[in-house]
Design a protein around this nucleic acid. Sequence first.
DNA 1: TCCATAATTCCATGATTATCAAAATATGGA
DNA 2: TCCATATTTTGATAATCATGGAATTATGGA
Lengths: 108, 108
Amino acid sequence: MEVNIAAETFAALAQPSRLTVLKELVQAGPAGLRAGVIAERLSVPAPTMSFHLKELSRAGLVQSHREGRSVIYAADYGGLRELIDFLLADCCQGDRRLCGPYVIKESA
Amino acid sequence: MEVNIAAETFAALAQPSRLTVLKELVQAGPAGLRAGVIAERLSVPAPTMSFHLKELSRAGLVQSHREGRSVIYAADYGGLRELIDFLLADCCQGDRRLCGPYVIKESA
DNA sequence: TCCATAATTCCATGATTATCAAAATATGGA
DNA sequence: TCCATATTTTGATAATCATGGAATTATGGA
């Protein structure tokens, strides 16, 4: 992952509401959550939450699709994986102090 | 790691120069690099780099100490580890799609 | 003490981000 | 078509962040 892209992705996580949303969406699993439910859960006005969801979407951390009158948001596991890979591979270049407890399995 | 703290830490990584510095410091290892060398390597004016190094320091991602006329910056492996732990543990709640290839070893 | 080097702080400027009311858009039913 | 619901876009405002020249602080040597 290129540095500028990684920085943009980190920017998407640099806001408490967005970080909380991502956590909830990972917990919710592939079924995701409706936009309205997300805004209500975090007690954030709909337009504000819409702005944050758009940011997460731009960063490739969540995906969305319409279902009737609702829009369903779900975590984008691929995007999350790429970011974790960046931190582990690019930032921790085999240094045991940093990577020690983690092992990358041969076969995913 | 609490969400607000995590968001602040991600904010420190949400800037290309800072992300690049962190990479170089991890590569440089515990010996670290002099502030002047860092600024020169990235072709960034000293005051600007000083600002970025302060941000990384506030976030607990780098440490510094004076050595004669120079100030040496080095990666803070503990801070980096905490952030990776947050992503793996807090965000990936045992979901195999996300955590599959990574294993947390019993004994660190 | 005086000077050169190394780094930071100060400060002004421009750019980006976060917030949310009001308006607009999209969908499904009556 | 008309209405209610669900969400997004618009637009204005305030707050935060990034940049770098000039001034300041810290250190070591002459």
